[in-house]
Write a protein that binds this DNA or RNA. Structure first.
Lengths: 112, 112
DNA sequence: CAGTATCCGTCTCGATACTG
DNA sequence: CAGTATCGAGACGGATACTG
């Protein structure tokens, strides 16, 4: 279970899954959608997700080449738990940052 | 938000939060409950969760020393999303391992 | 367009040993 | 009991260059 959670907890994996939530995307579309990801990391993340059966890869032999990525049913089943976690993070990021500031300022963490 | 997800999605953090879901636990109780965690990783994970205001740390000065960890209200609000993620991982670990085996056996991508 | 290959610094993890 | 200190292997991630 640990390695499964590691995949899910990876920041790039989460962003790729979220980017594919709306439907299939091509490589460079993903690259544009996911700000800050390098080509290398996008490739590696997609391979990892593909290996785990969460993402499908469809190659169209043409010039220029075309590769479409999409969530598999398994990948889709991950959307809900990931979205809930994401929503929690968005809702509570303020509290967490406050707690961090307090903790870092002094050992006084009796609040929160 | 990435750093929040990093903390929350971290495999050890998830397991610690799940272990504390039933109530407060002492250091070595957690160590026993969470199979495979090293002392160092448990300490680091607890510090991280404490810093983020998700876990409280109560020291009882005695011999031997006693330290109780528990979820804060904020930590408790995390229980549900984390449990969903954990349940997803437990429910789908079989499918993922099958997918991995297929992927690794099939096309030889040497490495990732 | 969609990758691979390579280099390289940084960070993480786990094992081990020691302590109040 | 509940940590801290230290160390080395390896994973991670960015930058860059090249290719079918």
């Amino acid at each position: 279970m640990n390695d499964v959670l590691a995949r899910v907890g990876d920041k790039w994996s989460v962003r790729v899954v979220m980017a594919l939530a709306g439907g299939s995307r091509r490589f460079n579309e993903l690259r544009r959608d996911i700000a800050g990801i390098s080509q290398r990391m996008l490739t590696r993340t997609l391979r990892g997700l593909e290996r785990d059966g969460l993402v499908s890869r469809a190659v169209t032999a043409s010039v220029p080449p075309r590769v479409d990525y999409a969530l598999t049913p398994l990948g889709n089943s991950l959307r809900d738990p990931v979205a809930r976690l994401g929503n929690w993070a968005i809702a509570n990021i303020g509290k967490i940052e406050t707690a961090r500031a307090l903790f870092d300022a002094g050992s006084d963490h009796t609040k929160l």
